[in-house]
């Protein structure tokens, strides 16, 4: 980020306020140009990561995808900027707000929150996780809608019954919450355990799935 911060120092030419007043640029013009840029970048295959945000009953979600699939779903509490910086470092820095690539998953999430969709049907990219965590996360979509499993049961499911704590970590570091349903994993005593998006969000998702 160093290269991006040395512009905040004093400038010897016109002050920001001065040039802003003198040379107006309409917000609409810039928004139109940015949309055109993201469309062209997508067409030319220049984007490592395309993203958009989506308002949902559990708050705004950041949705990000590579050309291989959905790579990140983030809650606002995680910090969208931080999530995008991590994607730039670990996946690639050509990151742009480019909604088109996320059209399908956004529609499916809206259907899910309306109670009409039980399974997500989009390609997933687990580039942000690895090893045992990735193995656990890949297995989570096999827990059916409206059902729950304990951390212990999931450990058994992946053939490593002693790795209960590691399953907890895999759920806590799930890069694709909601779509990869780590909210369906609870403590053996039925307690909620933890959730990246906060326990209120976990409760809301479980209630939604019970009601449908």
């Amino acid at each position: 980020m160093t290269g991006m911060t040395n512009d905040d120092g004093p400038r010897t030419t016109g002050t920001g306020a001065d040039t802003r007043t003198l040379f107006p640029v309409a917000d609409g013009d810039l928004a139109r140009l940015r949309a055109r840029l993201s469309g062209a970048a997508e067409d030319l295959g220049l984007l490592d990561v395309a993203y958009r945000t989506l308002d949902t009953p559990i708050g705004p979600l950041l949705l990000a995808a590579t050309e291989r699939g959905l790579v990140r779903v983030a809650f606002e509490s995680e910090g969208f900027d931080a999530a995008l910086e991590t994607l730039a470092e670990r996946v690639g820095p050509r990151v742009l707000e480019a909604p088109r690539r996320l059209d399908t998953v956004a529609r499916e999430l809206e259907e899910y929150f309306a109670g009409g969709r039980h399974v997500f049907d989009v390609p997933l990219d687990f580039a942000l996780s690895s090893g045992f965590r990735r193995e656990v996360q890949r297995r989570l979509p096999h827990i059916d809608y409206g059902r729950t499993r304990s951390y212990k049961q999931v450990a058994e499911l992946v053939g490593n019954p002693r790795a209960v704590r590691a399953v907890g970590t895999a759920c806590a570091t799930n890069p694709l919450p909601v779509v990869v349903p780590c909210h369906r994993v609870l403590r053996t005593d039925g307690g909620l355990g933890g959730y990246i998006g906060g326990l209120d969000a976990k409760r809301t998702l479980l209630d939604l799935e019970r009601a449908a």
């Binding site: 980020m1 290269g3 991006m4 512009d7 040039t19 040379f23 640029v25 013009d29 810039l30 140009l33 940015r34 840029l37 990561v49 995008l84 910086e85 994607l87 730039a88 470092e89 820095p93 050509r94 990151v95 742009l96 707000e97």
Partner: peptide, 23 residues
């Protein structure tokens, strides 16, 4: 650069448009 490109568009998009319009 390891910074998301979006940050550059957000910060400097207006300045670059002013330059292009003046030229």
């Amino acid at each position: 650069m390891r910074t998301p490109f979006e940050v550059a568009v957000e910060r400097y998009g207006t300045t670059v448009l002013r330059v292009c319009r003046a030229v």
